[in-house]
Amino acid sequence: MKQIFRMVLVASLVITSACTNTGSGFFGNENGTGGLGGTGSAAEGSAAEFQSAVGDRVFFEMDQSTLNSDAKTLLSSQAQWLISNSDYNVVLEGHADEQGTREYNLALGARRANSVKEYLVSLGVSGDRLQTVSYGKERPIEICSAESCYSQNRRAVSVLDNLGF
């Protein structure tokens, strides 16, 4: 009941501020390619806040699944947020750039998603709340064939699960 109330509140907030949003979906779309822009007006404890104030994604070096210090810093904030907002589960999406074969990139995306999962768990987030899925190279967010795009595509996106409301 509490959660339903919260979601309604957030939904109305998003609708009223929709003109300033650059994203395509409420939680970002299902592929983690959208997301609400950093408008800074998100309600405390909302998915919008998670995306704008915390940040929903981390990036990887080519062919790597280890977390760099930027990624660890951001995931620490994610962990804190998730611990204080325990109503949400999270789908961790792993993605790869187009420089690789399809099957390998699927496996690499799974490695990336799992790196994030393990780190969040190490910071106290319950593993039961975290589910991983790899999209391999199927869903690039930037579509040029250059490192400037590839670096944005080698990502793991934490998508808040809306099954709870």
Binding site: A107, R111, N114, S115, K117, T132
Partner: peptide, 9 residues
């Protein structure tokens, strides 16, 4: 086939 568990395939 390949099966992935815990990030390992």
């Amino acid at each position: 086939y390949s099966r992935e568990q815990g990030g390992n395939s």
